[in-house]
Design a protein around this nucleic acid. Sequence first.
RNA 1: GGGGGCGUAGCUCAAUUGGUUAGAGUACCGGACUGUCGAUCCGGUGGUUGCGGGUUCGAGUCCCGUCGCCCUCGCCA
Length: 594
Amino acid sequence: MASWQRTHTCGALRADSIDATVVLNGWIENHRHHGALLFVDVRDRYGVTQVVFQQEFDGALFERARRLGAEDVISVKGVVARREKANAERATGEIEVLARELVVLAEAEPPPFEVLDVAEANEELRMRYRYLDLRRRPLQNALLKRAGFVTAIRNFLAAEGFIDVETPILTKSTPEGARDYLVPSRVNPGTFYALPQSPQIFKQLCMVAGLERYYQIARCFRDEDLRADRQPEFTQIDLEMSFVEEPDVIALVERMVVAGFREGFGIELPQPFPRFDYEDAMARYGCDKPDLRFGMTLIDVSALAARSDFKVFRGAVESGGIVKGICAVGAAEKFSRKGIDELTAFAVARGAKGLAWAKVTQNGVEGSIGKFYEGDKGKELCAAMGASPGDLLLFCADSKKVVHKALGDLRLEVGGKLGLRDQKVFRCCWVLNFPMFEWNEEHARWQFAHNPFSAPVDWDVADFETDTANIRSRAYDFVMNGWELGSGSIRIHKPALQAKVFQFLGITPEQQRANFGFLLDSYRYGGPPHGGIALGVDRLVTLALGMDSIRDVIAFPKTARATDPMSDAPSVVAKAQLDELKIQCSVPPPGTGA
RNA sequence: GGGGGCGUAGCUCAAUUGGUUAGAGUACCGGACUGUCGAUCCGGUGGUUGCGGGUUCGAGUCCCGUCGCCCUCGCCA
């Protein structure tokens, strides 16, 4: 063993090693000069240990140590000693290493930003030097926790008999869904592969193949605009099971997520996860991914509003709309007129025409609707809302769609301002029975609300033509703290039904053949009933660690423009490469000034 | 594609109504210091104010364009 190789990590040494001779390897995190004394903090993945160089012990060694700079990589041999004054904030704070030998393994230029626990540099710079950003403990911790979580998931699924199967990255483009990333085929000029948006069809083929239980930690690609919770490539826990129905998948996934959070993050998730009908979730929370960390549910007061003197309320009901409200408990004093004006603007930005509000006092209700709800009417309203003195009531009157959107978002906004969305609290739920189809305004046609392979709830009665909006699919979403973290369904496994669904959406038999023919064909040879789910790993980890963006839990993420400032991808390629692929660009390469 | 925010020293930021030589902290370099731990103290280097154009006696500041980053709407079966 080379003499510079470490005997301990920088997080390992404690008081029980005093007087031991040790070797540490790591980066210089910080150094403090005190004349004839020099303190150096040495960092590795495991921690930080203080090393002391003393001039009186070895003048030549001391001179060399004086020249050490931030992020130099060193090996230091020394004797463990008890500190004169312990540092309680550090795991190794009771001891220090009295340096006896020093090897500089690599010298570092001053980094473009300081490698601190708190990120001070802007994100673009940090991305350009991602390898330095990743040296920071919070990011290392995120990658460590992510790996631990994924390992726990793998262990769980392996123990449950799931087979890890790799599916193609070079696959076939299909018209539905997100835009595909395309890869030209050199061998077949003029044709293109697509990177998978998900392994959906392949995992279903695994079921036809009789694997029964498939899973994959799968990279997925979607060429859509980015967000804080969206990257062009992302990772899913993808799984599929044969001979199952909704409760089987849900129960398994619930156990898997609980195990993953326990072993990966040390978080105990409250069980069981409540299950909501889609309609119910929309009615109570105004959205299909309810944040259950707090109540403040949407309460329907349409019946009351219908006989109100307040024209906005009565008019909304008379024209077929609804009136709903939320009750922010004890919040009356926390929102000034200006604060309520801001909430109104918030609701208006989401399509509401305005926001009716009232503060509940001992004497009744005061506020924009106060004069319409004096005396008993006010009491009746408060009773309907479950409101007590000190509460703030917010109402929205409009079409069901607008009310749910505005009030659902407002609920989250008010909940956030009241501190009810604690990042350390985790509440999961399932949302079931989604609509099978949704109306696409732009193209004036029905389209899949979930995916083309989700089975309808009722096989026999379903009448797509006459009752389209009410057809439910056997789809289920897994939701945590208001984030959609997983989506799945029981699939159609009978070719006749699949054809019927495609036909209804105007997808011709020719198009079906061209796009999904191999899946439809496979069912002719005995496809078992099956279903599955895919969970977003990046979002799960982001949420568990209380990070703000999925970029914080991805080692090498991309910017909002889908670029990588470090590698400079995507980039112009040589004309010879394009020629070989028989590709011509209709725009000049960027940066040519053309 | 639309809307919003930001862009000044290596980094984080400041700069009055458009007005003197664009400052501070930090990093870096040099010096002092034997118990620090975001050490402290003294001194120093460091600027195409993203880029281009315009208005003006004068632009970091105002106007137009452009580039980049972030948030968001559309989009994401």
